[in-house]
Design a protein around this nucleic acid. Structure first.
Length: 671
DNA sequence: GCGGATCAC
DNA sequence: TATGGTGATCCGC
C-alpha cells in the first residue's frame, strides 16, 4: 500500500511543526532550516516520539477515520509500520514527502514575501479582493442548477462480485488482488484494518488467515455490463468513469416518467439490486462534482441529494474538507493546510493569501468553494485520446540485455494497442523506475508517424542506452513505452475524408437526392461501428487471455475497491461480454481486423486515401503524413448529426460540447 | 518540446 | 522477500 495516500490523516512525521495551520503564521520563513535531511527523526528526542506516532497514523491509510473500523487502530498502525519500515518503497515515499514539505516551505516564503509588498488592508490588498469578487460573481452567473446529475458507485465492487461467485466467502476475511489488494471484505477491514491498496504481505501480517482471491477481470466486466445496462435505461448518454462508477443526467428521464427525483433514484437502485444482486450508492446534485462527493455520503447502499439551490450548495461546501474535491489529492491537501485552509469554506476566508501563494491562479479553488462544477454528462470519445502506453514492473535488474528485452515486449504491446485503436504518434517516451522507486522518462519526437514495435523499440532502446552511458549501470524495477502526439487514423480527419471518398465513388441514384445517399451513409456508418465493436471485443479478449505472460492485464487500484477501469476509455468491457454471452465460441465470433499490406512489400495501400503507394518506408510514411495533413485541413466543424430525442442540446453550453460523429459532415450536406 | 509531479481510478 | 498500470494535466524550463 501507499502509506502516504491517506485521505484522512492530517499530520505527518516530516511536517514541520510550524506548518501547523493552527499555529500562528509567521511573516518570515525560517522553515528552510527544518528540512527533513537536516533533522532525521532518529536524531531527535521527544519530537521523535511524536513523529513516530504521526507516521504510524499516516500509514493507517484512507479508511482510518471512517466509522466502524478496527477498534485498535494504533496497534494496526504499529504492525504496518514494523513490516514496512526500511523498505525501499517506504524510503522513497518518505523522500517524496520531504520534498512536498520543501515545496510548501518555498510556497510560504513566496507568500510571505508578497505579503510584505501587499500588506493586509492596503490598497493593493483591496484590489486583489476586488478581483476575486469579480471572479466569484462571474462564476456565480454561470451557475447552472437545471440539471439533475447522478454519480453512481457500486459498493465494494470487486468483493461483491467475488462473493457472488463464491458464497462460501460470506462472513470471512478476504481480499482481492495479487501483490496488492484491490479490495477487502468488510470483515477484514473492520476486524483487522486490511484495506484496498495494501500490499498482500502487509495485509497478511495484520490478518494471518486472510483469504486472498485472485482478481478475475472477466467477472467484473460482466457484472459491470449488467449494471450499466440498467443505468442506460435512465440515461443512454451516460459517462462511464470506470467499471463501477458512472455519471448520469436524469433530467429528461424524470421529466418524461414523472415521480420525484429521489423516487427515481430509489427505483434505479432497486432495479440494480434485483437484476444484479449488487448495491449502488448514488449522489444526486446539479453538477458532477457535487454528485461525486455526494455518492460517498450514504455509502453503502444509500443515496444523498444536494438540492439545486445556491444556499444549500454553499452550506454543503462550507465544512467539506478540501480533500474531498476531485483533483485535490494529498499534496494539494497539505499545501492548502499549510495556508490555513482545510475546508472549502475556509477558501474564502483565505482568498487573498491563496491568491498571493498561487499567483492569482485560484479559480479552481473559488469554484470548489462555490460548489460550481461540470453540468454536462457525455461519454468520453475515443478520438480524444492523448496517449497510448504500456509499462511493466519486474524484480529489479541492471542487466542491460534483460532491460532491452523487457522494453521490446512493451514496444510490441504498444504496437498492438496502436494498431487496434487506429492511432499513430509522433512522440515516443521511455518510462522507467529505478530500484529505489524513483521514476523518470526520456522522450524523442519524430518527424514521422510511428506505430511499429520496431520503431518504438529503436527509439526507446537508444534512449535507454544513452541513459546508461550517461550515468552508468541502471538498476530498474519498471520499464515501459508511451506514445503521444497521436494522429487518429479513424476519427474526424481521416475517417471523414475516407468516407467522403467512398461516398463520392458511389454516386447517388438519379433523381433521388438525399434519400439514397443517406441510407448509403447510414449503412456505411453502421458497418464502421460494427467493425469498431469487433475491434473492441478483440481487445478485451486479448487482455483477458493474457494471464500467463508477464504483461497480464492488471486492474486498477485505488482508494477504495473501485478503480476498475477498462484500459481503454471506451466502454469496451460491456460490449465484449455481450459478444461472449451470445457466442460460446468467441474466437470465431470475433473477427480480427484484416492486416493491412505490409509496409515492407514496397507497395502498400494508404490507410487514408486508399491509393496504392510505391517506394521506401520513408516515402510511404511521408505520403501518409501528407494525406493526413490534407484531410485534417479539409475537415471543418459541423453541426450535430441527428438531433436526438434529448433536449440537452438546447442548452447553450451543452451544444457547444455536443458529440460530433464522423458522419456529421455528410448528414449536413444531405439536408 | 521535455521531464517531473500530481491526480484519478 | 515483498508495494500496480494507464492516462491526463499542469508547471517550469
Amino acid at each position: 500500500m501507499n502509506f502516504f495516500r491517506d485521505r484522512d490523516a492530517n499530520s505527518n512525521v516530516f511536517d514541520d511543526p510550524k506548518n501547523d495551520p493552527t499555529a500562528p503564521s509567521p511573516t518570515t520563513s525560517p522553515r528552510k532550516k527544518q528540512k527533513y535531511e537536516s533533522q532525521p527523526p532518529s536524531s531527535t528526542g521527544s519530537a521523535d516520539d511524536a513523529a513516530l506516532a504521526s507516521l504510524r497514523k499516516r500509514m493507517a491509510g484512507p479508511s482510518s477515520a471512517k466509522a466502524g473500523l478496527a477498534k485498535d487502530q494504533d496497534e494496526i498502525n504499529r504492525i504496518i509500520y514494523e513490516v514496512s519500515k526500511g523498505s525501499k518503497f517506504f524510503e522513497n515515499e518518505r523522500k517524496k514527502d520531504a520534498q512536498t514539505t520543501e515545496r510548501i516551505n518555498a510556497l510560504l516564503v513566496r507568500r510571505d514575501q508578497k505579503l510584505l509588498q501587499v500588506p493586509r488592508g492596503s490598497a493593493e490588498w483591496l484590489a486583489i479582493e476586488r478581483k476575486i469578487e469579480d471572479m466569484a460573481t462571474r462564476l456565480e452567473n454561470s451557475r447552472d442548477l437545471s440539471r439533475t446529475i447522478l454519480h453512481t458507485d457500486i459498493d465494494m465492487f470487486y468483493a461483491a462480485v467475488e462473493l457472488a461467485r463464491d458464497p462460501s466467502l460470506k462472513g470471512k476475511c478476504f481480499g482481492v488482488g495479487s501483490g496488492v489488494l484491490v479490495t477487502a471484505s468488510y470483515e477484514a477491514r473492520r476486524g483487522y484494518g486490511v484495506r484496498s491498496g495494501m500490499a498482500v504481505f502487509v495485509a497478511k501480517a495484520l490478518c494471518p488467515h486472510l483469504i486472498v482471491v485472485k482478481n478475475d477481470m472477466q467477472s467484473y466486466v460482466q457484472a459491470s455490463q449488467k449494471v450499466m445496462a440498467v443505468f442506460e435505461q435512465y440515461d443512454e448518454n451516460l459517462a462511464k468513469a470506470s467499471l463501477d462508477e458512472a455519471y448520469l443526467d436524469i433530467t429528461d428521464y424524470v421529466e418524461q416518467h414523472g415521480g420525484s427525483i429521489d423516487q427515481v433514484v430509489q427505483q434505479l437502485r432497486e432495479q440494480v439490486r434485483s437484476e444484479t444482486q449488487l448495491t449502488v450508492s448514488v449522489g444526486i446534485a446539479p453538477n458532477t462534482m457535487l454528485a461525486k462527493i455526494s455518492s460517498d455520503r450514504n455509502k453503502p447502499d444509500g443515496q444523498f441529494r444536494v438540492q439545486p439551490d445556491r444556499k444549500a450548495i454553499v452550506d454543503f461546501m462550507r465544512d467539506l474538507p478540501c480533500r474531498k474535491i476531485p483533483g485535490i489529492g494529498r499534496v494539494n491537501e497539505r499545501i492548502l493546510e499549510s495556508l490555513g485552509v482545510s475546508t472549502c469554506g475556509e477558501i474564502w476566508n483565505k482568498r487573498v493569501d491563496l491568491w498571493l501563494a498561487f499567483d492569482g491562479k485560484i479559480e479552481w479553488l473559488i469554484k470548489a468553494h462555490l460548489g460550481i462544477g461540470n453540468t454536462i454528462v457525455e461519454p468520453s470519445k475515443r478520438e480524444e485520446r492523448k496517449s497510448v502506453g504500456r509499462e511493466h514492473t519486474f524484480s529489479p535488474t541492471a542487466d542491460t540485455q534483460a532491460l532491452l528485452d523487457l522494453l521490446k515486449e512493451s514496444a510490441q504491446r504498444v504496437e498492438q494497442d496502436l494498431e487496434r485503436l487506429d492511432f499513430k504518434g509522433k512522440t515516443v517516451t521511455l518510462v522507467a523506475k529505478r530500484d529505489n522507486y524513483q521514476r523518470f522518462s526520456r522522450a524523442r519526437t519524430s518527424t514521422r508517424l510511428v506505430h511499429r514495435a520496431e520503431e518504438l523499440y529503436d527509439i526507446t532502446s537508444s534512449l535507454l542506452l544513452q541513459e546508461i552511458e550517461r550515468e552508468g549501470a541502471l538498476s530498474l524495477r519498471l520499464i515501459g513505452v508511451r506514445v503521444t502526439q497521436l494522429v487518429d487514423l479513424r476519427g474526424a480527419a481521416a475517417g471523414e475524408e475516407r468516407l467522403r471518398k467512398l461516398f463520392q465513388s458511389k454516386p447517388v441514384a438519379e433523381g433521388e437526392e438525399g434519400a439514397t445517399a443517406k441510407t448509403t451513409l447510414r449503412r456505411t456508418a453502421r458497418e464502421l461501428r460494427e467493425e469498431e465493436e469487433r475491434q473492441l471485443a478483440l481487445a478485451i479478449k486479448q487482455s483477458l487471455e493474457g494471464s500467463a505472460d508477464p504483461f497480464t492485464e492488471v486492474p486498477d487500484l485505488s482508494q477504495d475497491d473501485v478503480a476498475v477501469r477498462s484500459r481503454s476509455q471506451t466502454p469496451i468491457a460491456a460490449r465484449m461480454t455481450l459478444q461472449s454471452d451470445r457466442n460460446s465460441d468467441m474466437p470465431t465470433a470475433i473477427t480480427p481486423r484484416q492486416d493491412p499490406p505490409s509496409e515492407e512489400e514496397g507497395a502498400v495501400q494508404c490507410p487514408v486515401c486508399d491509393r496504392t503507394v510505391h517506394g521506401s518506408n520513408d516515402r510511404l510514411n511521408a505520403h501518409i503524413d501528407a494525406c493526413l495533413n490534407q484531410s485534417a485541413l479539409n475537415t471543418s466543424p459541423s453541426d450535430p448529426a441527428e438531433a436526438g430525442p434529448s433536449q440537452r442540446g438546447d442548452r447553450p453550453d451543452a451544444s457547444a460540447k455536443r458529440k460530433r460523429g464522423p458522419l456529421d459532415l455528410f448528414v449536413r450536406r444531405g439536408k
